[in-house]
Measured scan of single mutants.
Amino acid sequence: NNDALSPAIRRLLAEHNLDASAIKGTGVGGRLTREDVEKHLAKA
């Protein structure tokens, strides 16, 4: 659900052409954090 993404996370996802649903969020309520996105990028 993109409504739960902060603007910074949306921008980071867009810059790397990532789909938020492909990344498991570890923030409050399962929200994506910058660390989640960076860890996903490091794996790729």
Rank of each mutant, 00 (worst) to 15 (best):
residue 15 E to I: 15
residue 30 G to T: 03
residue 42 A to M: 13
residue 22 A to Y: 09
residue 33 T to Y: 01
residue 24 K to A: 09
residue 44 A to V: 15
residue 37 V to K: 00
residue 43 K to A: 14
residue 12 L to V: 06
residue 35 E to I: 09
residue 41 L to Y: 04
residue 23 I to S: 00
residue 29 G to Q: 08
residue 38 E to P: 00
residue 19 D to K: 10
residue 39 K to A: 12
residue 19 D to T: 10
residue 25 G to N: 02
residue 30 G to W: 00
residue 44 A to Y: 15
residue 27 G to A: 04
residue 13 L to Q: 00
residue 44 A to D: 10
residue 23 I to Q: 01
residue 21 S to Q: 09
residue 30 G to L: 01
residue 15 E to Q: 15
residue 41 L to D: 02
residue 11 R to S: 08
residue 25 G to W: 02
residue 10 R to P: 01
residue 25 G to S: 05
residue 10 R to H: 05
residue 4 A to E: 14
residue 26 T to C: 02
residue 10 R to E: 10
residue 1 N to M: 10
residue 15 E to L: 15
residue 9 I to A: 04
residue 13 L to A: 01
residue 1 N to D: 14
residue 22 A to R: 10
residue 38 E to A: 09
residue 24 K to Y: 06
residue 41 L to W: 04
residue 35 E to S: 12
residue 2 N to M: 12
residue 14 A to I: 08
residue 33 T to L: 08
residue 31 R to D: 04
residue 31 R to I: 13
residue 32 L to V: 10
residue 14 A to D: 12
residue 32 L to T: 03
residue 2 N to P: 13
residue 20 A to K: 06
residue 17 N to P: 01
residue 42 A to D: 08
residue 20 A to V: 11
residue 18 L to V: 09
residue 9 I to F: 06
residue 16 H to A: 05
residue 9 I to M: 11
residue 17 N to K: 10
residue 41 L to R: 01
residue 44 A to E: 11
residue 12 L to A: 06
residue 3 D to A: 09
residue 25 G to H: 06
residue 42 A to R: 13
residue 6 S to D: 15
residue 21 S to H: 07
residue 38 E to I: 15
residue 22 A to I: 10
residue 22 A to W: 11
residue 21 S to D: 09
residue 43 K to R: 12
residue 14 A to T: 11
residue 43 K to N: 13
residue 20 A to T: 06
residue 31 R to Y: 08
residue 24 K to E: 10
residue 32 L to Y: 03
residue 9 I to Q: 03
residue 30 G to K: 04
residue 17 N to L: 06
residue 23 I to D: 00
residue 37 V to I: 15
residue 39 K to P: 04
residue 7 P to T: 07
residue 20 A to I: 12
residue 14 A to H: 08
residue 33 T to A: 02
residue 8 A to P: 04
residue 39 K to M: 12
residue 22 A to Q: 15
residue 4 A to D: 14
residue 38 E to Q: 10
residue 7 P to G: 06
residue 43 K to F: 13
residue 14 A to G: 07
residue 10 R to M: 07
residue 14 A to C: 07
residue 15 E to A: 15
residue 1 N to Y: 03
residue 2 N to F: 04
residue 15 E to V: 14
residue 44 A to H: 14
residue 32 L to S: 00
residue 26 T to L: 04
residue 33 T to M: 06
residue 7 P to Y: 05
residue 23 I to G: 00
residue 44 A to L: 15
residue 2 N to K: 12
residue 35 E to L: 12
residue 37 V to P: 00
residue 43 K to T: 12
residue 26 T to F: 02
residue 22 A to K: 13
residue 2 N to E: 15
residue 14 A to S: 12
residue 6 S to R: 04
residue 26 T to H: 04
residue 39 K to G: 09
residue 24 K to H: 09
residue 2 N to H: 12
residue 4 A to S: 14
residue 31 R to W: 08
residue 14 A to F: 10
residue 42 A to N: 11
residue 14 A to W: 14
residue 10 R to Q: 09
residue 7 P to N: 10
residue 3 D to Q: 12
residue 9 I to S: 02
residue 21 S to R: 11
residue 31 R to S: 13
residue 31 R to H: 07
residue 37 V to N: 00
residue 35 E to R: 14
residue 41 L to Q: 02
residue 35 E to T: 10
residue 6 S to H: 08
residue 23 I to F: 03
residue 20 A to G: 07
residue 33 T to Q: 04
residue 19 D to P: 07
residue 34 R to S: 08
residue 32 L to E: 00
residue 31 R to E: 08
residue 5 L to W: 04
residue 41 L to G: 01
residue 31 R to K: 13
residue 14 A to Q: 12
residue 44 A to Q: 14
residue 22 A to D: 14
residue 34 R to Q: 12
residue 2 N to S: 13
residue 17 N to S: 08
residue 43 K to L: 14
residue 18 L to G: 01
residue 1 N to V: 13
residue 30 G to S: 05
residue 9 I to K: 02
residue 6 S to Q: 06
residue 30 G to P: 01
residue 6 S to G: 07
residue 26 T to W: 02
residue 29 G to K: 07
residue 7 P to V: 08
residue 1 N to T: 14
residue 34 R to N: 07
residue 23 I to A: 01
residue 27 G to R: 02
residue 15 E to F: 15
residue 42 A to V: 10
residue 17 N to R: 08
residue 26 T to K: 03
residue 42 A to K: 13
residue 43 K to H: 11
residue 24 K to P: 08
residue 33 T to F: 01
residue 7 P to I: 09
residue 43 K to I: 13
residue 42 A to T: 09
residue 29 G to W: 04
residue 13 L to E: 00
residue 36 D to R: 01
residue 18 L to Q: 03
residue 31 R to P: 02
residue 30 G to R: 04
residue 33 T to W: 01
residue 11 R to P: 00
residue 7 P to D: 15
residue 37 V to T: 01
residue 8 A to G: 08
residue 15 E to K: 15
